[in-house]
Amino acid sequence: MIRVQREDFDIAAEMKALTGARTDIGALVTFTGLVRDDSSAPGLKAMTLEHYPGMTEKKLSEIEDEANRRWDLTGSLVVHRYGRLEPGEQIVLVITASSHRGDAFEAASFLMDWLKTEAPFWKLEKTGDGETWVDAKVEDEDAKDRWQKE
């Protein structure tokens, strides 16, 4: 399942919703991305995430489908927020469920690497000096490329 929303999310509640009454899930991996105040934008006051409604949902669903094709998952969830966020706030949540941890760990990592280069979101950082659009990072492309099939 994928969701794009302005509101915050509750990690424990999302984990519980994903497992439900199932007892065949042996591994649940969660990744949460937070707004970070770092050296590239010291004194970060806020970050505004813009996205492309429609294409965002489409790309996230495609990414999730691909993860489910590659790994044996019993469930998965991607939640991505948009709008104005302050340092320390949650931006993105990925949860993968599987019988065993290997598939759950790899699928969660894959989902994040793909999402960063394929989902149409843009970050605008606000510091004391003004507002700046964040540049895409080469490392993110490299991180995605490691999942390319030979």
């Binding site: 960063k116 970050k123 895409a136």
Partner: peptide, 10 residues
């Protein structure tokens, strides 16, 4: 048709 900079989500 949409035009935009390289994406920076996540």
């Amino acid at each position: 048709v949409a035009f935009f900079p390289p994406v920076t989500g996540g």
